[in-house]
Simulated scan of single mutants.
Amino acid sequence: MYERFQHQLQRLKNNRIFELFVVSVIIISALEIGAKTYDLPGWAALITQYLDVFITLFFLFEITIRFLAEPNKKGFFRSGWNVFDTLVVVISLIPVQDSEMALLARLVRVFRVLRMVSVIPELRVLINSLIKALPQLGYVVLLMFIIFYIYAAIGSYLFKDINPVLWGNIAISMLTLFRVMTFEDWTDIQYETMDVYPMSWMYYMSFIFFTAFAFLNMVIGIVVNVMEEEHTRARQEDAETREPTLGELQAQLNDVQRMLKTLTDNQSNDRESLK
């Protein structure tokens, strides 16, 4: 009895219409949060309060379905996304009005928008790819910091007297170089120093080559590579866990029938050869 009920919950959880309804509720939740940042008339504020109650109860209903549909209850909380969703739902149950934890409850309601990531598999793949790429990105960021530090020290020594606001010390120089790397009016900084040091353009060109071109392309390459691996792994897991479609079952049945026919023909040939 319970297994049949659990199977029905699994079908509901994997139902495409139910998934789209969950996404719609998350979007409505995001709009409701944004609407509360405005000065609303009384009737609109009342509607947002009722919406908030409905969204909170619906998320509680949805996470309960996902928990009951999970065959391994302990394994449910081994997923970071399930833990995140559960925390958001539980903290959202804190009353917003007349509560010492009202601010925390309001802030957590903002994070309900992130549930879009846990609901849509493609977004989960993107986030997982970024997280798994962090160890490899760490070495690139470290090397970029070394380049920043060297160029900031040189810039502070050479250009401090020209413009102490931009090159006063190594920390300010690093912020200035970040502005150069992002191409935010960097030519104004370059022309200002070229009035005193005409060859200072080499300083900026070499820095831009190392950071904006070389290192940023390395970061993009690492993320894309990890993302391809995550997509491949996600497709393999989906193929292992999802139920076969009617067409796939029919194709498998046809293959079995062909194999049986071939085996029967071979046996008939063997009998004739023995005769």
Rank of each mutant, 00 (worst) to 15 (best):
D255C: 11
E240C: 10
P198T: 00
M202N: 06
T264R: 13
V219L: 07
E248C: 09
F215D: 00
F207K: 01
Q267D: 10
M181P: 05
A212N: 06
I220V: 07
A214F: 14
R235G: 12
L166C: 06
T262D: 15
A212K: 03
A251F: 13
V180T: 00
E184Q: 08
T182C: 15
N225C: 05
Q252C: 09
T193Y: 07
T232E: 15
T187V: 08
L246A: 12
W167Q: 04
G168P: 12
Q236M: 13
E184Y: 10
G221V: 00
T193D: 08
S200I: 01
L249S: 03
F207W: 01
N254L: 15
I172V: 15
A251T: 04
S206N: 07
L253Q: 11
T241S: 14
L249Y: 05
L260A: 10
E243M: 13
V180W: 00
N225F: 12
D188Q: 13
M259Q: 13
N225Y: 08
L249V: 01
L263E: 09
M227T: 02
A239N: 08
M227W: 11
T211S: 12
V223S: 01
F215V: 00
P164Y: 01
D238W: 15
T232I: 07
Q257G: 09
K261Q: 15
T182W: 09
E230N: 11
F210K: 02
R242T: 08
A239V: 03
R179P: 10
I220Y: 02
Y191H: 10
Q190G: 04
N169D: 15
I220D: 03
Q257C: 10
A234K: 06
N254H: 08
M174F: 08
A234M: 09
M174T: 01
Q250T: 03
E229K: 15
I189N: 08
G247I: 02
D265P: 12
M202H: 02
